[in-house]
Amino acid sequence: MNGKQKIQQAFTTANADGRAALAMFVTSGFPTLETTVPIIKAVADAGADVIEVGMPFSDPLGEGLTIQKSSHAALLAGTTPQTCFDAIREARAAGVTTPIVLMGYYNPIFACGLGEFCRAAADAGADGLIVQDLPTPEAAPLLDECDRYGLAFIPLVALTSTDESIAASCQRGSGFVYCISVLGVTGVRTQVSDRILGLVSRVRAKTDLPIAVGFGVSTAEHVARIATYADGAAIGSALINAIADGAPEGAAERAGEYVKSLLPGARRKVVAK
């Protein structure tokens, strides 16, 4: 199985098991370079279905304060694309089989060289990419390289997306479709707006890919609500807050505990499909 199939399979398996899939985001290199592999392993062991490994960027214009700060700290700690690849490779060596997606911004990928980046990512054991500032109309060169190395390119769709852009993104994307639940940047919010329901159904009409909802998702209650209409939930800032809430030595344990706290929400009372 290549990365695209592996990611899609993770959703299928979770859904068949009566659960919404959980896609969990961690910033590589935060709080320290050494904690990344233990955190990935703890998040996987706790039951995450997909792990998004964040590659920090100096100018993360799609992020709220939490991930701005974790990105900044990770860069100060010496995080580079190479250390992200190394962390994934080590996590695989430590037995993590959960699909892993690299999530970040375009310029570090472009600086590396698109082909070289995808080759190194696939070689390290990554299964796909999410690029926050690379909408489908600009993504053709990177999509070609993802195809060459069997990496999924996970499209982001937004409340403001037109049906045409949703169709184009779903057609070229793979793995799953990431629906942005809010107008805004990443970050914990008290509620997940039901405005997302309209977007999910518009996406559903265009694709058979699994659909995950993210941005602002932080509690088991949020996940439970999302589980009634989507195939998975994506959670980032709340996990970063848990990781940041104490000494680096306990970061992996706190990450695992937080993921476990979401599991009751992910379980569907009635299997939707």
């Binding site: 214009l61 799609g62 375009y106 926050q132 500032d133 690379l134 909408p135 109309p137 600009e138 499209p155 982001l156 769709v157 937004a158 409340l159 403001t160 997306s161 037109t162 852009s165 993104s169 942005i180 107008l183 805004g184």
Partner: peptide
Amino acid sequence: ASGRFGQFGGKFVPETLMAALT
């Protein structure tokens, strides 16, 4: 038409903004 000056320019923004740019 794609907003390019040779290789430069383009629309490298989060998807939420694409409709506003159009």
